[in-house]
Design a protein around this nucleic acid. Structure first.
Lengths: 280, 280
DNA sequence: TTGCTCCTCACGTCACGTGAGGTGGC
DNA sequence: TTGCTCCTCACGTCACGTGAGGTGGC
């Protein structure tokens, strides 16, 4: 029994036990993620020990789950097991959310390829200036669902059911569509004139001339309705600058699919040319 | 009603309707994935048409699912709807498989972080030369499960239950672990001396001195057992060159988890030093 | 005329993989 | 001594993002 707990391993031996290529191990050394226990000063040879195998497995598993190297480093470096577990739990939670949305995206794409092209009934409408309470932020495409849920929940609680003057909605700056990230404002119409708290601010929603279409389907399929509305607006040549508006009219409980939402999508247009579309 | 079906859009307008950034659209033009309907020869301005919105949505959705641009191009270029659907179906199938393995990996990682370190009972054994029928190939880490299933199924059918002399197994060249890809040979012991067909070839499994451990768990957790065995072998300093051997002893039907496999993992060692580990 | 949109390079990013060319260790 | 392992650059890959510096269109 001459076993040495920290037996020295060359990079090749360590590679075989960790499923990490020598190139990858050199890279992890360069970026300080997984440092060899010893480096020969004369030859530059890297030597690892058997004690490092467990860490290397954790690193590989986390990288297999696409955790960025910076986060993996935070996990490995965390002295405190609680802090370590927190980082991992956060990433695993994000992974599981991504899993679910990806599964939904796959299902939705199958549908997109078999279902016919959407034809939307577009209507022209002028919305008057409206007092609201609102929450605004710079939001990315990938986080919009979660952000909107949180903001609308906070707005609902702040305004109160009795003081609400209509369905909640949101404004999207063009950059949100053009660059995948931009200012988004969630709002709830209300005539309250006291001072809101938290992230909530009073907002006078400006009057606007709009081409309005109804999206009835999953939120992940909103792009199809946007495309259909944008297409008509472009073909009529009636579009003008300004944020896109959405209003959330609830779920369609008569549908077989439990995730069918009813969302009004409103595109700013020039009122002079409203002859091009039907009237509300 | 002056709508023009193919209305001209600047890159910014098209960007807003497709959720693709102008930079991304220029990139797709450069690589020939999504070409503008018109390019102004004097100014270089790109112009798209509303007819291209649907294609752009398909491209974006496929890219969101990480389909490589080459494959997306094949989908968009496919004139034949059947060919188009075949490419998409193949990728969606791969996506769904990846979804399942990722879900498993997440669950397994949670366990890895809470469960104690594996302690394996290692035993020394000399295996005599063994006649087998075998299938070999160059296989990557990500495809090993599928490949092994196919190869073992073909071997089982070729050899026949009555001519089988023991459990099936596999050999792995070091490159499989070091580079994530390498030669793998699946085998079934048999004394048959007729000529096999298909991918099957006769193979004399060479005699070998082995350190043998039993992995009892999910196949996705085999790395833990490899690490534990490799560690002991390294600490004793008894490892020698040669392929790793596995033998598949079936599932543990007594376990609550339906995916508990029993796999014998054998690491080639120098018989001179077998005093370091217990005897079989 | 202003300023917003669009243009073309060139370079950066992320996590490595792939040689080229050379040295060290058993 | 051979050849296998290891070394350090340097550059490539993939799908864009990010300026820099400049022109065009309403």
């Amino acid at each position: 029994m001459d076993g040495r707990p920290g037996a020295r391993l060359t990079i090749g031996q360590f590679s075989r036990m960790t499923y990490l290529s020598a190139t990858t191990l050199r890279h992890y050394h360069a970026v300080g993620l997984l440092e060899p226990a010893e480096v020969d000063a004369a030859t530059g040879y890297r030597y690892y020990t058997t004690d490092q195998i467990a860490d290397a497995h954790v690193v590989r598993r986390l990288r297999d789950l696409d955790m960025p190297i910076e986060e993996v480093r935070a996990v490995v470096r965390a002295g405190d097991p609680a802090a370590r577990d927190a980082v991992i739990a956060a990433h695993l939670g994000a992974m599981e959310r991504r899993l679910r949305t990806t599964a939904a995206a796959v299902a939705s794409l199958r549908e997109l390829l078999t279902a016919p092209v959407d034809v939307l009934d577009l209507q022209y409408r002028r919305d008057a200036q409206t007092p609201t309470w609102a929450i605004g932020a710079d939001v990315g495409h990938d986080e919009i669902r979660e952000w909107a849920r949180g903001a609308l929940w906070e707005l609902a609680r702040a305004v109160g059911a009795r003081q609400r003057n209509g369905p909640a909605g949101a404004l999207y700056e063009p950059a949100f569509f053009e660059e995948g990230r931009g200012r988004v404002v969630a709002f709830v119409p209300t005539a309250r004139d006291d001072a809101p708290s938290g992230r909530v601010r009073p907002l006078e929603l400006p009057a606007a001339d709009l081409a309005v279409g109804i999206h009835r389907g999953r939120l992940g399929d909103l792009d199809r309705s946007y495309g259909a509305i944008g297409r008509v607006v472009a073909e009529q040549g009636i579009g003008v600058d300004g944020p896109i508006r959405e209003r959330f009219l609830g779920r369609d409980r008569t549908a077989a699919d439990p995730d069918v939402h009813v969302v009004e999508v409103a595109w700013p247009v020039d009122p002079q040319f409203r002859v091009g579309i039907s009237q509300a």
